[in-house]
């Protein structure tokens, strides 16, 4: 072993050992734990698949798991679609010297307390909240308009305590995580390629779809994954704005661990969630590879 290799290994040892002890070990432990069962306070250590059978067949777990996946999917698509034009604007329309100022403006709201940001959405969407108190003077008009058209309208109301509220709130919370990777990918595009496309007879729209968008794909895929993976496991947003119909898998895992005191079931749900997320993430990457021509 030469000197360089030895130095590299010495340097990587402390962070690696830390990650092995506090990440790989615990992940292995939770995997082990998911095959055990708990009866009141005693843990039965005979390995069994009972938890997995229950997690996959019990309608409550199934509903919540599927709901977590579709809510996260909706959040991911909404966030990336809304974020792309912003990243495009900063990369292509803003003068280079002012780009970091723009990124700074975009990131500032996200370094303020996560809990409070989510809570403020509850204030915005709440029954007595900002949107509803703004809608109050407008609603009689809307109802009147409805009556004139012969429709039974109740007027508009903000969607607190629903999956929609979770989607809006999470899309807000994860916006910069989508903007930044797309921005980085757009920055890497050689501007000469776009000029070449125009010279060869493409118009602005076809240049965008045939040159810019394919070249930005790595950033878009990164954005999809960076938003999707953590949102599946989000706890605070569904707990604060989701209501009973907006609860997600993290809330269920938390209940199993701290409320129902059924830690093995919680571990099983965590493992199932991780496996599903990994499969979807890998499928997204594979699909993107195929679409961009097997690169």
């Amino acid at each position: 072993m030469d000197q360089e290799t030895k130095r590299g290994l010495t340097l990587i040892a402390p962070p690696l050992l830390y990650a092995l002890a506090l990440l790989a070990g615990p992940l292995l432990a939770i995997f082990l734990f998911s095959f055990w069962t708990q009866d009141y306070l005693t843990i039965d250590r005979t390995p069994t698949l009972a938890n997995y059978a229950e997690a996959l067949t019990d309608p409550i777990y199934r509903t919540i798991m599927l709901r977590s996946l579709w809510i996260s999917g909706a959040v991911t698509i909404a966030t990336v679609v809304l974020a792309f034009p912003v990243a495009y604007y900063v990369s292509f329309r803003v003068a280079p010297s002012r780009k970091s100022l723009w990124l700074f403006l975009i990131t500032i709201p996200f370094w303020t307390s996560y809990l409070l940001r989510i809570f403020l959405w509850k204030v915005i969407l709440g029954y007595n909240g900002v949107i509803n108190s703004l809608l109050e003077p407008i609603n009689p008009w809307i109802v009147a308009l409805g009556q004139r058209l012969g429709l039974e309208w109740d007027g508009l109301a903000a969607p607190l305590y629903s999956p929609e509220a979770v989607i809006i709130t999470l899309s807000h919370a994860f916006a910069p995580f989508a903007i930044l990777p797309i921005f980085v990918a757009l920055e890497k595009i050689d501007r000469n390629l776009l000029e070449a496309a125009r010279d060869l007879g493409e118009n602005a729209v076809t240049t965008f779809f045939r040159v810019t968008l394919p070249l930005a794909m790595p950033g878009v895929v990164a954005a999809l994954l960076i938003v999707f993976i953590p949102t599946v496991g989000d706890y605070v947003t569904p707990a604060l704005v989701g209501g009973p119909n907006g609860l997600m898998i993290a809330n269920m895992i938390q209940t199993q661990f701290l409320g129902l005191n059924n830690a093995p079931m919680g571990a099983t749900l965590a493992v199932v969630a991780m496996v599903l997320v990994t499969i979807i993430a890998l499928a997204t990457v594979a699909l993107a590879r195929r679409l961009s021509g097997g690169r």
Binding site: L22, L23, G25, P26, L27, A29, I30, F33, L225, I226, I229, P230, V232, G233, D234, Y235, A250, I253, Q254, F257, A263, G266, A267, A270, A273, M274, V277
Partner: peptide
């Protein structure tokens, strides 16, 4: 940990 949902880190450390 960058791509792991935090609830997973939390529960696995709690278990251990």
């Amino acid at each position: 940990p960058l791509v792991l949902p935090e609830i997973i880190v939390a529960t696995s450390l709690l278990v251990v």
